[in-house]
């Protein structure tokens, strides 16, 4: 049995530089095999564009197995497209029908400005991590790994939070462009573990201060982020971070 082929209509955001205003361009792409991934479809489109001497669509991508967090775009108004718990690279075309129109836009947020076409600058997320999203364990200073026992339940919750891939879909989907799911996941992971305790409250303050410095909005508990997250990270992680923040304000 051969894979089915379909024809798709694309409406893709083209923007040549951060200063450019940008606009949508329409393309029709035939012979899209339903077993192709979304990014492979963009590859195919780009091959076609180059053949017509049109500059290919710039888009970020790397591992193409849903773990590096490099890819991402809004497809028909949904971060990473319509399939739940899935990054763009793992979204396969069997989820679309022949002659469907796909509107593809970059993540839009002042904190993650567009660089070109679908490529955005997510360095703000790095800056948030560098403000405190770690445990300061200098190389060589660690005790034996089994010296501190950790509740399996807590370790599992920490792992749930730690599976964030930093793709920025939470910011993209949030009506306020808030990165709280990203931030909350990191704070939550580290504060659940005993190793993370000593810096716990300072970390919360520093990371949230950095969020304010970047052009991100506030969290208004709409939970759009949880729905958009390709790793289904729970908003309870935001609550845990919020709890830490309250503790910090109580302790001063």
């Amino acid at each position: 049995m051969m894979s089915k082929k379909i024809t798709l209509n694309f409406k893709i955001w083209r923007q040549s530089s951060p200063e450019d205003k940008g606009k949508f361009k329409e393309y029709q792409l035939e012979d899209v095999s339903v077993s192709m991934s979304f990014l492979e479809t963009l590859d195919l489109l780009n091959e076609k564009l180059v053949a017509q001497n049109e500059e290919p669509v710039a888009f970020d991508h790397d591992c193409r197995e849903g773990i590096c967090g490099m890819c991402g775009a809004m497809v028909n108004g949904e971060a990473h497209g319509p399939l739940k718990d899935t990054t763009l690279c793992q979204l396969h075309m069997r989820h679309f029908k022949d002659q469907d129109t796909l509107v593809v836009e970059p993540w839009r947020s002042a904190g993650m400005p567009v660089v070109k076409d679908l490529v955005v600058d997510r360095s703000a997320l790095d800056r948030i991590v560098s403000s405190g999203g770690y445990i300061s364990a200098k190389t060589g200073s660690a005790p034996d790994a089994n010296a501190t026992l950790i509740d399996k339940e807590k370790a599992d919750l920490a792992m749930d939070a730690a599976s964030c891939i930093g793709c920025g879909a939470c910011v993209a989907a949030c009506p306020n462009a808030s990165p709280m799911l990203f931030v909350g996941a990191k704070i939550s992971q580290l504060s659940l573990l005993p190793q993370g305790q000593p810096e716990s409250l300072q970390r919360v303050e520093d990371m949230l201060d950095q969020v304010d410095e970047e052009n991100f909005g506030h969290c208004s508990n709409t939970y759009e982020c949880e729905a958009a997250c390709p790793k289904s990270i729970s908003v309870s992680n935001i609550a845990r971070a919020n709890r830490q923040s309250i503790l910090k304000s109580l302790k001063g």
Binding site: Y134, I135, A137, T139, G140, S141, A142, P143, D144, A145, N146, T148, L149, I150, D151, K152, A155, D156, A158, M159, A162, Q189, L190, L193, Q195, G196
Partner: peptide, 22 residues
């Protein structure tokens, strides 16, 4: 062995037994 120690200290959430051991 040092690597595992280092990573645990950094908060890498390795799988654990119910006893809390790695």
């Amino acid at each position: 062995n040092n690597i595992i120690d280092q990573c645990v200290a950094q908060g890498v959430p390795f799988a654990r037994e119910y006893s809390g051991y790695l």
